[in-house]
């Protein structure tokens, strides 16, 4: 008989002999027990997770409520008497939106800032919405914007601003904030930030402020 045929017969005989072999019944019993245990384990966390979701929802609601209270409290502080006095002065500076912004006022502001440049550059004040809303409205129609003070650029000359100028809204990389000593959120480093650049009649940028 041919070797190949013998081998094939031998393999078939082996396969036929092993055909009835099966795993013992204990294996099935163990598997079913494990399956039941797994189902219990799967069901248990569902209850816990529901409770967790509720807890998180309540916590979120509380956080929102606290934020609203704090925000209102801060707004109340801004309206306190000394600042209200300033607020009364501000309406004089407000001009209609369609007119050219008061560059003289900006020049005065910038000049004041240049007379004391270092603290201003190192720690620019983040302007509160309530107090600076009117000024922001001079440049853009977005009344809800928050803007910093104008930060003078190195070659600022207040005299040039007396002749007029122009404020241009631009978008800058957020990294530009760091150049003016403003804090940068590294998570949003690649995003753009709005800024108003104050150009003089000489065509040079004299000051900049960042808008949110």
């Amino acid at each position: 008989m041919n070797d190949e045929e013998m081998l094939t017969r031998g393999l078939k005989a082996l396969a036929a002999e092993m055909e009835p072999l099966e795993a013992p019944e204990t294996v099935e019993a163990k598997l079913l027990a494990a399956f039941r245990a797994q189902q219990k384990v799967v069901q248990m966390p569902r209850r816990q997770s529901n409770a967790r979701y509720w807890l998180m929802a309540v916590a979120a609601m509380l956080l929102i409520a606290i934020s609203v209270v704090v925000f209102r409290w801060n707004a109340g502080r801004i309206d306190s008497p000394p600042q209200q006095a300033n607020k009364q002065e501000q309406p004089q500076n407000i001009q209609p939106e369609n007119k050219r912004p008061s560059l003289e006022q900006f020049a005065i502001n910038v000049e004041n800032q240049t007379s004391n440049p270092l603290p201003q550059r190192r720690k620019p004040r983040r302007v509160n919405v309530a107090s600076y809303r009117p000024e922001t409205a001079q440049v853009a129609n977005h009344t809800n914007e928050i803007a910093t003070d104008f930060i003078p650029l190195g070659y600022m000359n207040a005299a040039n601003l007396q002749d007029g100028g122009q404020i241009v809204r631009v978008k800058l990389p957020r990294s530009a904030l760091a150049k003016f000593g403003l804090p940068v959120n590294m998570d949003r480093y690649n995003e753009k930030v709005k800024a108003d650049v104050l150009f003089g009649v000489d065509g040079l940028a004299h000051a900049i402020r960042f808008v949110q």
Binding site: L21, E22, A23, V27, E28, L31, L32, F35, R36, Q39
Partner: peptide, 18 residues
């Protein structure tokens, strides 16, 4: 479904075991 596991097991365990 536990029954499906039992059916699937009975259907395939022989080949796997062998």
């Amino acid at each position: 479904d536990e029954e499906s596991l039992a059916l699937l097991y009975r259907r395939r365990q022989g080949g796997i075991y062998r």
